[in-house]
């Protein structure tokens, strides 16, 4: 009896153990592949480490340079490396102006388009219109840059007069960056809006809501996390946009609040200086790393905030 039971136990144990054994008995090749794939994942981390390391060491070299002090860097309103003046405010100010104008253009357009596509358009219309809108997102930004300088700037100069609007100006760059972000915001918001379950809409209609009331009081609040995330990613994109501002916003840092004047953004300045003929380890060269560090911190901060917003305001529907 005992023998039988033990054999039974043993067979049962073996039967249970088989799947575990299968998963444990990997061929060496399998391990190698897994290691290789793991390394692929780690490369991305190394990239980040590389960015942070380069930015930090070069910025450190910049700040320990006798001509530079950290306090002047964050408070001075002039950036003129030739005469040793390093105040990052004009660059940040121009970046913020471009981003603000861009968001003023892209928020209403993007959200409006998203609400129309998700709430009003027929499925057929949505199927054709959304890809068309996404074509806008696929156009290289340098094309948008020439669109800004070749079309938007002359248009602004026609409207407001060539005395008011300079040839290179922040407004044209901001408007075009806004246009460039519209598809991003429209597409991300539309995804968020259409993932709201239709039972919520049906309930709102059942209570007598109009389509507009359903859209703005039920669907948008329910999809708020996705919509907010789209906005923040949009801002981050506007801050990091390079080609449009390098072409259309002007080449020379200036501290101005007039959007019709030329001013250089952080990205535009880095592009101009690093593209130019500069000697390495000169103060100019080091200064672009300090700007890049600030830029990196801003965009990383915005990304983290957007990730937090998505988690914090997410409404989960079963």
């Amino acid at each position: 009896m005992q023998d039988v039971s033990t054999t039974q136990d043993r067979t049962r144990g073996a039967a249970v153990a088989v799947p575990f054994n299968l998963s444990r008995r990997k061929s060496p090749l399998e391990n190698v592949i897994e290691m290789l794939l793991f390394v692929c994942g780690v490369v991305s981390v190394l990239t980040t480490v590389g960015i942070v390391y380069v930015l930090l060491t070069e910025s450190l070299a910049f700040f320990t340079h006798p001509d530079v002090t950290l306090i002047e860097f964050v408070t001075k309103t002039r950036w003129q490396p030739q005469i040793g003046e390093f105040g990052i405010l004009p660059l940040i100010n121009a970046t913020m102006m471009v981003a603000t104008i861009a968001m003023l253009v892209s928020l209403p357009l993007g959200l409006g388009a998203a609400i129309f596509l998700s709430e009003y358009a027929s499925p057929q219309a949505r199927k054709t219109l959304k890809p068309v809108l996404e074509v806008l997102a696929g156009i290289p930004t340098v094309v948008y840059g020439y669109f800004a300088i070749g079309f938007v700037t002359p248009m602004l100069r026609n409207i407001f007069g060539p005395d008011v609007v300079q040839i290179y100006n922040v407004a044209a760059a901001g408007i075009v960056v806004g246009i460039l972000i519209v598809p991003l915001i429209a597409s991300m918001s539309e995804d968020a809006l259409s993932s709201v379950p239709s039972s919520l809409r049906q309930a709102a209609y059942g209570l007598g809501s109009t389509k507009f009331e359903t859209a703005t009081k039920i669907v948008v609040p329910a999809a708020l996390s996705g919509v907010l995330a789209a906005f923040i990613v949009g801002i981050s994109r506007a801050v990091g946009e390079t080609m449009v501002v390098a072409i259309a916003a002007g080449a020379g840092p200036s501290f101005t609040f007039n959007p019709f004047e030329a001013a250089e953004t952080m990205t535009g300045h880095i592009a101009r200086i690093s593209g130019g003929d500069l000697s390495y380890h000169s103060i100019d060269y080091l200064s672009i790393f300090a700007i890049a560090l600030v830029l990196f911190a801003i965009t990383l901060g915005l990304n983290i905030v957007s990730g937090y917003v998505v988690r914090r305001f997410r409404e989960v529907y079963e």
Partner: peptide, 19 residues
Amino acid sequence: IETNINNLAGVPSIIYGIL
């Protein structure tokens, strides 16, 4: 790795440029 990849995608290309 996962968080890092999400954040990397948001880094402006000019920063990769100077890297």
